[in-house]
């Protein structure tokens, strides 16, 4: 079957699956909680950045929360995650502590990398999170290598490898696609298409804007997913992860998503109209969507939701508190961890 046709076919089959899905109270509330944690955490990080407590680059995930939360819900214990530098959301979704992530952002010793990695370079082997990589596209080969190791060990694990529409134009992405399909590696490539590679829109950077078909010449199936709907993400994730886990090889998910903030804290985002952002926020916000679904479906009361909101605020405020009061790394740490 020609690759493009194969991809198209999977597209249709998944949209049916999405419609068929019905989440219960537990899933909806869990998704709401996880997404809200990321949203509030990122807002706080933005605030701390403005206060000069976070340095360097800081790329916020606000608007894209449904992608990592939905995908994480499709994983099982042992599956790995790797991404680029817009990574705070991925870490929280993996179950890494807000305190440790925030303290890394402020460059303190209690951070996940002892303050030596910063926003773009954080890891937690315990939570199977492999970074946190600052070079656009590099994590795609690395994630393919983690999947290679899964197959080598025959451990049944799948590696989720996230990258953006911008990284999709890097050469090593396609080198990795080729090997992944050739060797049938258990990897799901998640292209978070937030429509802008820094300031360059996909229309201005990409000859083929249908990213779900970027694996076509390697026979890798792919599909477009509404990345603003956590349930759709979950459904697509289940299918893609299942495909990879059963030895069928890689799968590509194009998550159509949107970041509300600039590329980084120093980006005024003049390349897009304010109305475009506003429209997304009001009409397609992933958190509001779940919140409405919960209330309309009477899965929880307004009060219960408010209680969750308060809990999240507490976690985030405490992380900020910890990250601003924790000590900087000891000067002796300068020379540690260069070699083992």
């Amino acid at each position: 079957m020609p690759a493009a046709a194969k991809a198209e076919k999977t597209d249709k089959s998944v949209s049916r699956a999405t419609k068929a899905s019905a989440w219960g109270k537990e899933q909806e509330l869990s998704a709401y909680r996880e997404m809200l944690l990321i949203r509030r955490f990122e807002e706080k990080a933005g605030q701390l950045y403005g206060m000069g407590l976070i340095g360097g680059f800081c790329h916020l995930y606000i608007g894209q929360e449904a992608v990592v939360v939905g995908m994480q819900m499709a994983l099982k214990e042992g599956d790995q995650v790797i991404t680029a530098y817009r990574d705070h959301g991925h870490m929280l979704a993996c179950g890494m502590e807000a305190n440790g992530v925030m303290a890394e952002l402020t460059g303190r010793r209690g951070g996940y990398s002892k303050g030596k990695g910063g926003s773009m370079h954080m890891f937690s082997i315990e939570k199977n999170f492999y970074g946190g990589h600052g070079i656009v596209g590099a994590q795609v080969s690395l994630g393919t290598g983690i999947a290679f190791a899964n197959r080598y060990r025959e451990n049944g694990n799948v590696c989720l490898t996230y990258f953006g529409d911008g990284a999709s134009n890097q050469g090593q992405v396609y080198e990795s696609f080729n090997m992944a399909e050739l060797w049938k590696l258990p990897v799901v490539y998640i292209i978070e298409n937030n429509k802008y590679a820094m300031g360059t829109s996909v229309e201005r950077s990409s000859a083929l804007q249908d990213f779900s078909r970027r694996g076509a010449s390697f026979n890798i199936p792919g599909e477009k997913v509404d990345g603003m709907d956590v349930r759709a993400v979950y459904e697509a994730g289940m299918k893609a992860v299942g495909h990879a886990r059963t030895g069928e090889g890689p799968f590509i998910l194009e998550m159509q998503t949107y970041r509300y903030r600039g590329h980084s804290m120093s980006d005024p985002a003049k390349y897009r109209a304010k109305e475009e952002v506003e429209k997304m926020r009001t009409e397609r916000d992933p958190i509001e969507r779940v919140r409405n679904r919960i209330l309309e479906g009477k899965l929880a009361s307004e009060d219960e939701i408010k209680k969750i909101d308060a809990e999240i605020r507490t976690i985030v405020n405490e992380s900020a508190e910890f990250a601003t009061n924790d000590q900087e790394p000891d000067a002796s740490e300068l020379y540690t961890d260069v070699l083992r």
């Binding site: 994630g143 393919t144 290598g145 983690i146 190791a149 080598y152 050469g171 080198e175 080729n178």
Partner: peptide, 21 residues
Amino acid sequence: DTPITEHGFAGVGVGAGFTGL
């Protein structure tokens, strides 16, 4: 045997190395 794809297979090797292989 890898394809002729140095950038890619070096990255695959490093990723596998991260997991302890």
